[in-house]
């Protein structure tokens, strides 16, 4: 019985680590920073995303006060430290924009974290997006940057 429990825990830990993909921002997506009911969440995966060169799209939109915003900022900046490429924009002391590229997964998929924040009436309107797929940051920029078109 002990052996079964040990192997179960080993497998659970391994698969959990894979699912979280080692990002600090996963805490936010799991609702450990801001309650899930206070965020608008979207999750798309599968063949619908293939035209975009993606296989996973996760997004969060929420409005928070200064304290919670700082917590989110810290998570994004921690993940930015592990990036291969990043583009960040600060407004004063606050991070207001980030496109962060992570090392590819074991299966060769690219991963990105996008962050956008705008202050309105004392609150921060925040959008956080996690993307995974074969598309590069250049592909995404070509597809979605309206300034280019």
């Amino acid at each position: 019985m002990k052996r079964i429990l040990f192997i179960f825990l080993l497998c659970f830990a391994g698969i959990s680590a894979f699912a979280q993909e080692g990002l600090y921002i996963e805490d936010l997506f799991e609702g450990r920073v801001i309650p899930l009911k206070h965020m608008k969440r979207s999750f798309i995966s599968g063949s619908e995303l293939h035209p975009y060169g993606l296989d996973t799209y996760k997004s969060l939109k929420f409005s928070v006060d200064e304290g919670d915003f700082h917590t989110v900022e810290v998570l994004v900046m921690k993940d930015a430290n592990a990036s291969t490429d990043k583009q960040t924009v600060f407004s004063g002391d606050h991070l207001t924009y980030a496109v962060i590229c992570f090392p590819p997964t074991l299966t060769g998929l690219n991963r990105f974290l996008c962050f956008q924040a705008v202050k309105k009436k004392g609150k921060w309107d925040v959008t956080v997006v996690y993307l995974r797929g074969t598309a590069t940051v250049e592909d995404l920029d070509a597809m979605f940057n309206k300034k280019r078109k």
Binding site: Q87, Q116, V129, L140, M143, F144, N145
Partner: peptide, 14 residues
């Protein structure tokens, strides 16, 4: 819309 907002905003991304 979300991705367009992100990739089109801020500084000159290109």
């Amino acid at each position: 819309n979300t991705l367009a907002s992100i990739f089109s905003s801020g500084t000159d991304v290109e």
